[in-house]
């Protein structure tokens, strides 16, 4: 078999071979702690960190909205964990909500929030609370602008809002220093358009990498004050809170996979250029 024949075969490579190689490249680095990752914190992530860091301890809470479903959990849960660690370490209170339409974001929050709170010994309903989910995101956002208690009369666990100490002073967005939405869909845009534009709330976003490009214009225009993008954003935040977690581990896999795809693109093009004359 000549080199050109080999290259021609490469052009019509069975996609299952690519899939198998990709599987290996994604799984192995996750468990091997290799290759090493040296993160440099981007301006967007630093801005988000600074905005959260500026919230006074034990005062009005950061609203953390789990607007994603399990499909995006690999990218966004590391962000949620890192941000919660930051808040709880600095005694910043956190009010969790979810506006993910099917309610699955609530399932994620119900697992993540108590777990990280236990790490820091933070008390439920005093230092943090999780209010559950509302299915119609835009309507819920507008309602919260008038009255949080109307939107969430009880928390996720059924406790009446009046019995939650954290909610005592929360009436509407006037008492909310910032909102961080973790999203992979247009919910992030709605946070900018409605609470951001209508009520002047400080909006921060944590987004899946594929969705970052959609939201960048809002960050550039100053309508979003800080932004975490994909696994990279999560890993950067983990670096800022000095607690490397699944975001940093995921970056290793991402690194190897990206280089593998680039290698395939280069090989594919070499094969294409070498065999172009023949196919003509």
């Amino acid at each position: 078999m000549t080199t050109v024949d080999l290259l021609q075969r490469l052009l019509v490579l069975d996609r299952r071979i690519i899939y198998a190689l990709l599987l290996v490249c994604a799984v192995v680095p996750f468990y091997m702690n290799w290759p090493p990752i040296k993160m440099e914190v981007s301006k967007e992530t630093q801005d988000a960190y600074d905005a959260i860091d500026a919230i006074p301890p034990d005062g009005n809470p950061l609203v953390l909205s789990f607007d994603y479903d399990p499909a995006s959990a690999a990218e966004l849960t590391p962000m949620a964990e890192a941000v919660l660690r930051h808040c709880f370490a600095k005694k910043i209170r956190v009010l969790g909500i979810s506006l993910q339409y099917s309610g699955q974001g609530a399932g994620i929050a119900a697992e993540v929030m108590p777990r990280i709170a236990r790490e820091f010994g933070r008390e439920q309903n005093v230092d943090w609370a999780f209010m559950g989910f509302q299915p119609n995101a835009v309507v819920a956002m507008l309602q919260m602008g008038e009255d949080f208690k109307k939107t969430f009369p009880t928390d996720y666990y059924g406790t009446a809002v009046d019995k939650i100490a954290l909610m005592e002073n929360i009436q509407n967005y006037d008492q909310v220093p910032a909102v961080l939405t973790l999203a992979g869909t247009a919910v992030a845009e709605s946070w900018v358009t409605y609470p951001g534009m209508r009520y002047g709330v400080t909006i921060l976003t944590g987004l899946t990498a594929v969705y970052v490009a959609d939201i960048v214009p809002f960050y550039q225009s100053g309508q979003i004050k800080g932004m975490l993008g994909g696994l990279k954003g999560a890993a950067e935040y983990e670096k800022l809170v000095a607690h490397p977690g699944s975001g940093t581990a995921g970056m290793r896999s991402q690194k190897v996979v990206h280089y593998m795809i680039i290698l395939f693109i280069i090989l594919g093009n070499i094969a294409y250029l070498a065999t172009r004359g023949r196919s003509r």
């Binding site: 006074p56 301890p57 034990d58 005062g59 009005n60 005592e168 002073n169 009436q171 509407n172 006037d174 008492q175």
Partner: peptide, 10 residues
């Protein structure tokens, strides 16, 4: 007991 310098209400 709330850590607020100023209380606001609508």
């Amino acid at each position: 007991s709330q850590r607020l310098g100023r209380f606001t209400y609508d």
